[in-house]
Amino acid sequence: MAKCSDTVILNLWHPVGAIAEAAPGAVQETVLLEERLSFQVGVDGEPVVWRSRPDARGADQVPAADRLPARGAYGYVWTSLGSPPADLFPIPEYAEPDRRRLNAATFGVNVSAPRAIENFLDMGHFPYVHTDILGAEPHTEVKEYDVEISVDRDEILATRCRFFQPMASTASDGGADVDYVYRVPHPYCSVLYKSSPVDESRRDVIAIFLQPLDQEHVRAHLLLCVLDENSEDKVIKRFQQTIFGQDKPILENQFPKRLPLDPRAETPIRADKSAIAYRRWLSQKGVTYGVIPAAA
């Protein structure tokens, strides 16, 4: 398979690892868009990323000119193989001091990044795949919701999503109708806001940041930014890992693996409104990596 030539994707910021799991000063090896990368987080928390090479055993041996763009954001190291924008998409809630901010896990998944985003946006599978947690029969209806492509923010926004959930989070004490808002501010990243069981006026934030290893394999980084004063970190992580572990076989059995962008390729239903908008948005951007572009 050829290395990535999709300039839209090359010019994006991409996550490569969780800062919490990178021992200060230790070099981590990973892959992004079929290129081997190394990164290191300094004791000051600043990441350095470079294309792996045998003569460089640490960031101090990599001249500035050979370093890739790098930044720390939302608990992860981000880099780019092209010319990335000055800013990464905002998640203002991440700065709120009373939130629990955790990398629930980074999992390798045999799926294309866009297929994983679509699954993240889908509420229809909750009762069947996340039975008795995020959904339960007979509450299977995906009620009408709104989707817009925000032009000024260049992102997809799905609002007024509601779903009955038996156990929406570690802080839940029973079933409840849960409000959702989904954002897709990056072709391979999505941010979900859902009602907090502990504070009616606020929402828990759960994000999925996909690191494309190649067109059909990702590392999925799961960010939690939630309101929960009582549960231990590992209990909060376990909840999200349980959910993601249920999605994994579904993701890995999607066919074709790359997401078809031709509107006639797969038959959507009303509940797939956000997925339709997502596919259209990828087409408009001219994304070709991880997708099957619509015939011109």
């Binding site: 896990a105 231990e232 970190d233 992580k237």
Partner: peptide
């Protein structure tokens, strides 16, 4: 007793 096997290596 939940153990943070991954990523915590508990």
């Amino acid at each position: 007793v939940p153990i943070d096997f991954y990523p915590g290596r508990e």
